[in-house]
Structure formats: structure tokens, C-alpha cells
Design a protein around this nucleic acid. Structure first.
Length: 357
DNA sequence: AACACGGGGGC
DNA sequence: GCCCCAGTGTT
């Protein structure tokens, strides 16, 4: 076992030195703020998807103080479309914590870093090692996969036992004085060579001692047990217009798209049409006896997410008398650009920009 | 321990 | 369709 471990780390570092051509804006970055920003953006997010967001954030907020001073809605606008919006909320809270508690100087101890909002064990280890070369091994999807395959470990990576086992192994393998380059190496290796599907085993420098390769288990490792349930939801959006204004509100429930904005929502258990919707109490409560005109009814649009399939329909309605809506605010079309919306809504807005009014 | 949280790309 | 992505917070 000891020799396998030595073989693993030595050949991994050798691969990094000789064959790793992966280039990214935050690689070899030493500013903990920029490293942190990249790590938050990249949580459960592909590098290509997060890349332009990283560039934009750095451009808008070159320092943590500047991010901390930014208005929340502006930060959400920059995050719009990236998903997992709690990351954005937590990021801003952490920036303000760093500015207030640490005087704007990013903390340089693992425990302090991990205590910040939105920073868990992975991100804390990444920042600690990349910025400060502290000996904390990263454990992300790449590391789970590489270790599981090379060492032939079939403990489910989404179990408590698996997390503990892989975490201890990752830490034991880490060359304490090379945490920075080693952590970078193992993640790049997982992304470039030991990929989830169709890994490049032919060109793999670890192949000779790889348990999964030698036992033909490449496609069976790592093991995951949990399967996700995808539920269907039906969002009927009323785009209510009065003069030059549209009514929107911020989503506050602990549900998808928390802190993003939306039009007047009437969610139903099944697909419905406007005739049926008009009989809904929520619609009656909305306008009372006010006269209205139907301007446009969209097709049923589908958005596939990890945990749910969302079917949405947009119904544009005009009224000449302002309705009294407590939860919603009236904004002009121009002002819509000041608010962050989920992808379903921005896609609809972009494709109907000229027809909205 | 289980679940929720977005959006997109590869196959 | 299903899996995965530089995971974390809540229940």
C-alpha cells in the first residue's frame, strides 16, 4: 500500500510538471480574494461556465472591499444565470465579514477561512493551500474519482463513511510542503485525464498501478448511491402592465430562485390554460373587478433543472387602473435591468423584448 | 443522514 | 434521459 501511495503522488506531480497544459485565469493566483471568488463560482459548476463570470466579478470588484461595498442587487445581477444563488448571498456576506472583522485582509488560517459563509471543507482547503500553501488536501469531485479509481475504493462517495475515508486518504497522500501544486495537480488530472466518462487511460501515467484499470472497474468507480427525484412544476406568470410599469417581486421562500425576482406567479399542480386560470381564486384576488385586456399568451416553456422540470407560461395582461398589490412592486421596463431574474424569465424577456409593450 | 439548491454540456 | 461539474447549508 505504501508503495502504491508513493507511486501515486510522485507520478501525479511528474504528470503535472511535464504534461499538464490546463490554463485558467485563477491558476497560480496568489491573491486569496481572487482564489476565493473563483472557488465559489466553480462550486458544482464547469470551468467553462464559470470563467466569464469570474472575469466580470474581478473587473467590477477588484478587491474584497469593493465587493463588500457593492449593493446586493448589483451583485445578484452579475451572478444572474449562474445558478445556486445562495452562493451569491453567502459570498457577499463573507466579503462584508472579511471587511468588518478582518479589516479587509483575507484570513490566513484554515479554521477562520472555513468559518466564512459559503466556505465548506473543500473551498477552505483550496484557499488555504493555493493562497498560503497550508497543508490541507482538497476533496472535490475530481479527487473522489481519481482516488476511488486508482486505489479501487468502492465506498459510496455520497455517504458519510465515504467522505471520511476519502478525506483521510487525500490528506495522507498530500505532500505537506507541496500542498499548493499537489492540490492543483490532482484536480487538473481528474479533469483532463481521469475524466468521468471516457478517461484517457491509454495515456495515463498511473495506469500500471491503477486498481480500476487493472480490474476493469473504470466505469464502475466511483460509486454513488443516491438518485435524485425530478418533480414537475407549472409556473403561470402574469406579466401585469399598468401604463409603463410591470409588477415584480423578490422570491423569499426557501425554494428555488430565492432572492431572485419574478412576475406575478400562480403555480398550479398541472398544466393549465388561461381560461382555467381566470377561475382561480388567486386571479380573482389579483384584479377584483378591474377590467383588463389580454395582450399575449406564450407557449408552455420548459426548463430542465437538476431536481425539477419547470414548465412556465407567460400571460401578458394590461390594466388601465392601478391594482393594489402588496407583495409586488411596479417597475418600468427599463428598470427591469436592475433586478436579477432566473434563466427562464430572462430567456423569455430576451426573446420578447420588442413585444412586451 | 437526507435533501435542496441552477444551469449547462457530453453522451 | 442520465450523469457530472473545483460543494454547501438546512432540515
Amino acid at each position: 500500500m505504501g508503495s502504491a501511495r508513493l507511486f501515486f503522488t510522485e507520478n501525479l506531480l511528474e504528470w503535472n510538471k511535464e504534461q499538464n497544459n490546463r490554463s485558467m485565469p485563477w491558476k497560480n493566483e496568489k491573491d486569496p480574494y481572487k482564489i476565493w471568488l473563483s472557488e465559489i463560482i466553480l462550486q458544482q459548476t464547469r470551468v467553462e461556465q464559470g470563467w466569464p463570470y469570474y472575469e466580470r466579478f474581478i473587473q467590477y470588484y477588484p478587491t474584497v472591499q469593493q465587493l463588500a461595498q457593492a449593493p446586493e442587487e448589483e451583485v445578484f445581477r452579475l451572478w444572474q444565470g449562474l445558478g445556486y444563488y445562495a452562493r451569491c448571498k453567502n459570498m457577499l456576506a463573507a466579503a462584508r465579514e472579511i471587511t468588518n472583522t478582518y479589516n479587509g485582509k483575507f484570513p490566513d488560517q484554515y479554521d477562520q477561512i472555513k468559518a466564512l459563509k459559503g466556505i465548506g471543507p473543500y473551498t477552505a482547503a483550496a484557499i488555504a493551500s493555493f493562497a498560503f500553501n497550508l497543508p490541507h488536501a482538497v476533496l472535490d469531485g475530481n479527487v473522489f474519482r481519481v482516488l476511488s479509481r486508482f486505489f479501487g475504493i468502492d465506498t459510496p462517495i455520497d455517504s458519510t463513511a465515504g467522505k471520511k475515508q476519502f478525506s483521510e486518504l487525500a490528506q495522507a497522500l498530500l505532500p505537506a510542503d507541496k500542498a499548493n501544486v499537489y492540490n492543483q495537480s490532482i484536480m487538473d488530472f481528474g479533469a483532463v485525464v481521469c475524466k468521468p466518462q471516457a478517461p484517457n487511460c491509454d495515456d495515463c501515467p498511473l495506469q500500471r498501478k491503477c486498481a480500476a484499470f487493472n480490474q476493469n472497474l473504470i466505469n464502475l468507480l466511483p460509486v454513488k448511491t443516491k438518485k435524485i427525484q425530478v418533480k414537475k412544476r407549472y409556473f403561470n406568470y402574469i406579466i401585469l402592465q399598468h401604463k409603463n410599469n410591470i409588477y415584480i417581486r423578490k422570491r423569499t421562500a426557501s425554494d428555488i430562485w430565492q432572492n431572485l425576482h419574478e412576475f406575478i406567479l400562480m403555480e398550479t399542480d398541472n398544466a393549465t390554460d388561461f381560461t382555467a386560470l381566470q377561475k382561480d381564486n388567486r386571479f380573482r384576488d389579483l384584479l377584483g373587478d378591474l377590467p383588463f385586456s389580454i395582450e399575449k399568451i406564450s407557449a408552455l416553456l420548459k426548463q430542465q433543472l437538476t431536481h425539477q422540470t419547470i414548465y412556465s407560461q407567460f400571460i401578458t395582461i394590461k390594466v388601465s387602473t392601478a391594482p393594489a398589490l402588496h407583495d409586488y412592486i411596479a417597475v418600468s421596463q427599463k428598470q427591469l435591468n436592475n433586478y436579477a431574474f432566473p434563466k427562464t424569465i430572462t430567456t423569455y424577456l430576451e426573446s420578447n423584448n420588442l413585444q412586451l409593450f
